[in-house]
Write a protein that binds this DNA or RNA. Structure first.
Lengths: 286, 286
DNA sequence: TCACAGCCGGAATAATTTATTCCTTTGCTT
DNA sequence: AAGCAAAGGAATAAATTATTCCGGCTGTGA
């Protein structure tokens, strides 16, 4: 995960002094890279030692390491191709501007989402999904659509998958899960009460819980065994539900592809399922 | 020009000592970033001061600045200009390569999709959707998920929308449509027999049919009044269903945003619907 | 061949930056 | 109210970086 995101996420739970430092870094990563601890401290009116301690609390061995991480993070964000705009979409915008902004913010959320999850966590989730006897997918509203999309893909690989858009049915299904199963729960806010209850129940039954939520602290994430994250354009109200969904899809697509890589006979499964569907399509007589 | 290139170019005309330092940096930029002047000097058996002087000779005020430049240069190499790799995903690919290819092909399909539809056609579709008494969304399989996603968004705007994932129910619904209504039909192949039949029936009843299909000639497109197109990465079998869905979503998202632009009270509707949902979320007692 | 100017490069040292220690304050718990 | 833990700053230690100084080597011109 990018340091800047990490700092931003932790900002709320930091001590006031650390928050000021973190805020400054998030707001001015460029300046920060050129400042010494003392200079940075002076900039925001705190002591030099606080800056050093801040770096250490974040898990970096030294201030220099923090700088390196910031520099790397900054470069990752720059990957948006030139011409992309990710401002919010305004009423007066022309067709072309809207197009660019839409694609720009979609791209941004996809990139930030893959950056927000490190390979280890993805790997753990993958391992769980791969070994699971059954996979239950939980999610309501828009997340339910993502869950269903993912369930179709998993079925193509011959996995045992459960999902229903009705949360009561989901709850009933969960009550049949056991320790060999996995619950994959999606909720951007991490606060959807139905999904949360389902995750809690699964946890109680010894089922491994993989949660896909936003980066902020949230109840669903707290009950999970494995935490994955999606990043959406929260500020831009008008596109937020779009990018939150895109972020979830990016993550589930990634998991699907990685599963395919792991499964030697995946192509055969996928191929067979596609043949089966195309038989349906070709059947013009029905 | 990137520092590394610059160093490489000057390597020949440098004094032997400087050349050694430069070579090391070019060869191991990653290590260099974590080494102090003294450590770097020790690594190649030279004096610490030589390293400092090396930085200065290159025009950087300090060793730290050189480090920053190297870090930046390294990150630039990462972002393959225009950014992405569009190759298909292979079994041996590393995690990072998969990430890039996935996002690359998603981006490509989004860009090609918006390019494949001219503003006039989009405008006509928009006009139809805007005026429609009722909007029926048709689609099966993965397209049904896109249809449902779109239906949620339209409902947020207070529109009259019909969609059911069961094609028989869709068919039944269509038989209640009239000339003031619009059928919005999604099918990448344009050959899904259920969706096609639904479109034909709608046509017969005088309902305007908007079809969203691939660019190839196809039956669904032929019966439609307004044709919109999605472009997916067909060659790449493994990601085709992913990009086809992304393309459809890009198009429906675009239509949604344009509808919002047209509807003066849209924000209020969207806001109200979001408030309603958040009330559900906050209700921890259920 | 013999100054001598120029530079390369290292040792020593100065200056700066970073890390640690220690101590006071503050707010919370018991 | 006493005890405790965390926050945060001052002082100081440790490290890193920058500068100075000096010996040695090389090419040049008398």
């Amino acid at each position: 995960m990018s340091v800047l995101k990490k700092i931003e996420a932790k900002l709320e739970i930091m001590a006031p002094g650390d928050r000021e430092i973190g805020q400054y870094i998030v707001d001015n990563p460029d300046q920060m890279l050129r400042l010494s601890t003392a200079a940075l401290a002076a900039e925001i009116g705190r002591s030099q030692s606080s800056v050093v301690k801040f770096s250490q609390k974040l898990g970096y061995g030294s201030y220099q390491e923090l700088k390196l991480a910031v520099s790397e993070a900054k470069s990752q964000e720059w990957q948006v191709p030139a011409g992309m705009i990710h401002g919010s979409i305004e009423v007066g915008d022309s067709y072309l501007v809207i197009l660019r902004k839409l694609i720009g913010s979609k791209l941004l959320s996809m990139q930030q989402t893959v950056a927000a999850n490190n390979e280890q966590d993805i790997g753990k989730a993958l391992e769980m999904l791969n070994r699971a006897r059954r996979i239950h997918l939980a999610g309501v509203g828009a997340s339910s659509l993502v869950a269903r999309d993912f369930s179709y893909k998993l079925m193509k690989l011959g996995r045992n998958v459960l999902h229903d858009s009705d949360s009561h049915v989901q709850m009933a299904n969960v009550s049949t899960l056991g320790p060999d199963d996995v619950l994959f729960a999606l909720s951007y806010s991490g606060a959807s009460i139905e999904t949360l209850r389902i995750a809690e129940l699964a946890r109680k039954r010894g089922t491994t819980v993989v949660a896909v939520t936003g980066l902020h602290d949230n109840p669903l994430s707290r009950v999970a065994d494995i935490r994955l994250h999606t990043i959406a354009d929260e500020e831009r109200a008008r596109s937020s539900s779009i990018t939150a969904r895109d972020a979830q899809l990016t993550l589930t697509d990634l998991l699907f592809i990685l599963l395919v890589q792991k499964q030697p006979d995946a192509n055969e499964y996928v191929h067979n399922s596609e043949v089966a569907v195309s038989v349906l399509k070709a059947d013009r007589s029905s």
